[in-house]
């Protein structure tokens, strides 16, 4: 493990000035991913800038009914916030589906967006990986890829993004705010993550030296009727093999508005816009839900061991949208296994 410097940031301008002048600096949020990667040698920063004391830990309700979530808000605080639970229940559920209580107490919103894939080739410095060492190859394509991407992947990388939170944010059109030494900027989440292409090591459109300061959720009445479901290989403490955030507004049997986003199928949270397009204005039936899933998944490219994800995501779309059409009170988002 390389020796590194440590600075505790006290204000945003000082932080971005430091980030701009120290090319080997990395921002330390909760450290729940970065520190692990430092231990295994995947990340070797020269300086850690600890941003946990920056005044970015507030969740504010905007005048138009949206939310502005500070970048250092912990996952636990985000999931527990009454307005998050009321206005965007799928977001609270997604956060609670991730990690463990201890990790959520540490992990931040900004860090969650920037966490790295858990692909076993990426996390092992003795193996080739285009994301870690550009040009070294992607052994997952021929090797272990049963949790690999089915949408948007290329032969250069089939890793999936591990975030649960990001899936719900994608469904609700989140916008990422950042600051650099030059000023402030915004990126819709849809543009935040770059396409894989031949450069899987380039993951986000954030300018160099940028600090994420907040995530804004625009008002979305449909989000009040939303859910998140995560399928994983054990009941807790595992990343998804497929997950879904869904919101649905049905009026007189017709889909008035729908939001769908998938997790663990691509290098980024996957907004299922084609499925939304097919559904909107049509009947809210299981057949229509299945047809919409098929429309979205028509673009899927599978490898020998991840083809099950197409079936899984299709089943999840049908199950979740069906649930959302049922006249039951949505339950409070909670952690833990279905029993």
């Amino acid at each position: 493990m390389r020796e590194f410097g440590y600075r505790r940031a006290s204000d945003v301008p000082g932080t971005v000035a430091l980030l701009g002048s120290e090319p080997e600096a990395r921002v330390l949020g909760g450290g729940t991913n970065l520190v692990d990667l430092m231990k295994t040698g995947v990340e070797r920063p020269g300086l850690l800038i600890d941003v946990r004391e920056l005044p970015l830990d507030r969740i504010e309700v905007s005048d138009d009914g949206g939310l502005r979530i500070g970048a250092t808000v912990t996952n636990s605080d985000l999931a527990a916030h009454p307005e998050v639970r009321r206005r965007y229940p799928a977001l609270a559920a997604a956060v609670l589906a991730g990690a463990s209580g201890q990790l959520r107490n540490m992990a931040t919103v900004g860090g969650n967006l920037l966490q790295r894939t858990r692909c076993g080739y990426f996390t092992d410095v003795t193996k080739a990986c285009n994301k870690r060492t550009p040009g070294s190859g992607c052994p997952a394509v021929e090797g272990e890829h049963h949790n690999g991407a089915i949408l948007g992947a290329t032969e250069h990388c089939v890793a999936v993004h591990p975030s649960d939170m990001g899936v719900a944010l994608a469904a609700f059109d989140a916008v990422v705010s950042y600051e650099t030494a030059e000023g402030t900027g915004e990126l819709p989440l849809a543009d935040f993550y770059l396409a894989v292409g031949s450069t899987p090591h380039l993951e986000t459109a954030l300018p160099s030296g940028a600090l994420i300061t907040a995530v804004t959720l625009p008002p979305a009445p449909v989000a009040a009727h939303s859910r998140y479901r995560k399928v994983r290989e054990r009941a807790s403490y595992a990343f998804a093999i497929g997950s879904i955030a869904a919101a649905l507004d049905v009026r007189d049997g017709v889909v008035h508005e729908v939001r769908l986003a998938f997790g663990a199928v691509a290098s980024r949270p996957w907004r299922a816009r084609e499925a939304e397009r097919v559904l909107t204005g049509g009947p809210a039936t299981a057949e229509a839900f299945a047809a919409a899933a098929d429309a979205e998944l028509a673009a899927a490219k599978t490898l020998p061991h991840n083809g099950y994800k197409v079936t899984l995501m299709r089943n999840l779309v049908v199950a979740m949208l069906t649930e959302l059409t049922e006249p039951t009170e949505p339950s409070e988002p909670t952690e833990g296994a279905a029993r």
């Binding site: 076993g120 080739y121 996390t123 092992d124 193996k127 021929e142 090797g143 272990e144």
Partner: peptide, 10 residues
């Protein structure tokens, strides 16, 4: 991993 002979995700 067949190609390297080592584990993935050890």
């Amino acid at each position: 991993d067949r190609a390297t002979g080592g584990h993935v995700g050890a």
